[in-house]
């Protein structure tokens, strides 16, 4: 399990001559093994925070400790290796590789690691079964429904057994029935596998499945002044 600690975390960027601050001195502690929903209006900094925690982006200032490691100062190649080992990322639009089958998409993160073909096969099978999509393993993304594609994406996110799962609007492109199934699956993964799970969402239903919900507004957590947020 993995914990996350943000101290005065700030992200700024320039848009034309205007400085945009999607995250503004954010203080936050996420306990290991927790399942949190991160909500807020568009532009409140949800995806920015998720990308910083995933090591996809770098903060302008402040500290970001993931499992005690300050990832903001890792080199690009070390960050890639760290992501391969620690992070599973689930996208709103699944982002499956269209020329690979469901099985091969799920296998993709394992090819980075020195595993035997047999071991890879066992892990991919298990991930597909956990995600409830094993029967579609030889289908290409174009042959799957949105809900099925998201299950494959979830299997891909968990196949390397990363302790941290990050999901950006995982139900944003799904119908209600598929959304519910995906949310149940995410909660099951959190409970059964002990993953730390942070889900960015606009979907209020997500809060029913998460252990806690964080609200961001203008780059800050909506909370009492001066009080550090500690969650789950």
């Amino acid at each position: 399990m993995i914990g996350i600690e943000c101290r005065a975390l700030t992200k700024k960027f320039m848009k034309g001559e205007t400085t945009i601050t999607p995250l503004d001195s954010l203080d936050l502690v996420i306990e290991p093994g927790s399942f949190l929903a991160l909500m807020g209006p568009s532009g409140s900094g949800k995806t920015t925070l998720l990308n910083l925690i995933a090591g996809i982006d770098r903060p302008t200032s402040g500290e970001l400790l993931v499992d005690g490691l300050d990832i903001a100062h890792l080199s690009r190649s070390r960050l890639a290796r760290w992501r391969a080992e620690k992070v599973g990322y689930i996208f709103q639009l699944y982002h499956l590789v269209p020329v690979l089958t469901a099985y091969e998409n799920v296998e993709l993160p394992l090819l980075i690691h020195p595993l035997s073909r047999k071991e890879r096969h066992a892990r991919v099978q298990r991930a597909l079964e956990l995600a409830g999509i094993a029967d579609r393993h030889d289908h290409y993304p174009r042959q799957l429904s949105g809900g099925q594609e998201q299950r494959v994406a979830i299997a891909r996110a968990i196949v390397a057994d990363p302790p941290l799962l990050l999901a950006d609007e995982p139900t944003g492109d799904l119908d209600r029935e598929s959304s519910t199934a995906i949310l149940k699956l995410l909660r099951k993964l959190s409970e059964d596998l002990g993953k730390t799970l942070l889900v960015v969402t606009h979907d209020i239903a997500t809060t029913d499945y998460a252990q806690a919900t964080l609200h961001l507004e203008k780059g800050r957590l909506v909370t009492e002044p001066g009080e550090e947020q500690r969650h789950a």
Binding site: A54, A80, R83, A84, V87, H95, L108, P109, I112, A160
Partner: peptide, 14 residues
């Protein structure tokens, strides 16, 4: 481009 971004998120180095 998006696929390249995805591969990097998965952990593939450039």
């Amino acid at each position: 481009v998006r696929e390249v971004g995805t591969l990097q998120v998965i952990g593939y180095p450039r």
